[in-house]
C-alpha cells in the first residue's frame, strides 16, 4: 500500500468555547460520528486565534487546521468573531498568494446546537485534507533518531 492509502491526516481544530466546542460536545451526545483525525484545542473565542497559531500548527506538521466559532452575530463577546472574520479572510488570501497551505486551512461557524453540522464539517475537512495528502511544503522536520546505537537514558 502506498503512503497515500494509509495516510491519516492530522488536523488541529481551534474551537471557540461557547459555540463550536459545545457543538462538538453535542455531536458526541447525539452520537453523530466524525473522523477521529481532529485534535481539538479549546479557545475562549475565534477572535482569540492569532494567525500565528494556525501557521505554527502547520509548520510543526499538522496536515490541516480548522478554525470554528460562533455564527456572526452570536459571539459571546459580541464582536470577537467579526474581527476574526476579517483577519482570517486576509490570512487565507495571503496564504493563497504565497502558495503555502491555503487549501489546508478551513474556517467555519458552528453553533452549540449544531452537533450534526460539526460532524459534517469535520468529515468534509478530513476528506479534503486526505485528498491533498501529507503536508510537505514548509514543514519543519526533525529527523527520526536512528534507533540503533542510541544511548539510553531516563525512562522512555
Amino acid at each position: 500500500m502506498s503512503e497515500r492509502d494509509t495516510f491519516e491526516p492530522k488536523i488541529v481544530a481551534f474551537l471557540c468555547n461557547w459555540c463550536s466546542y459545545a457543538g462538538a460536545d453535542l455531536a458526541g451526545i447525539g452520537r453523530f460520528q466524525y473522523p477521529p483525525n481532529v485534535r481539538v484545542i479549546r479557545v475562549p473565542c475565534s477572535g482569540r486565534i492569532n494567525p500565528l497559531f494556525i501557521l505554527k500548527a502547520l509548520v510543526n506538521g499538522a496536515d490541516g487546521v480548522l478554525v470554528s466559532g460562533c455564527h456572526p452575530g452570536d459571539c459571546h463577546y459580541l464582536q470577537g468573531n467579526y474581527v476574526a472574520r476579517r483577519k482570517f479572510t486576509v490570512l487565507k488570501s495571503l496564504l493563497k498568494f504565497a502558495g503555502a497551505w491555503d487549501d489546508r486551512v478551513f474556517f467555519s461557524w458552528v453553533s452549540a446546537a449544531e452537533g450534526q453540522r460539526f460532524s459534517e464539517v469535520v468529515t468534509e475537512v478530513t476528506e479534503a485534507v486526505r485528498a491533498l495528502g501529507p503536508n510537505q511544503d514548509f514543514v519543519k522536520r526533525i529527523p527520526e533518531p536512528l534507533l540503533a546505537g542510541l544511548e539510553q537514558g531516563g525512562a522512555r
Binding site: 526533525i142 529527523p143 527520526e144 542510541l150 544511548e151
Partner: peptide, 13 residues
Amino acid sequence: ERMFAFEAGAVEP
C-alpha cells in the same frame, strides 16, 4: 547545524 537528536529519553549523537 544539527549536533544530536533525541527522542523521549534516548540520545543519538
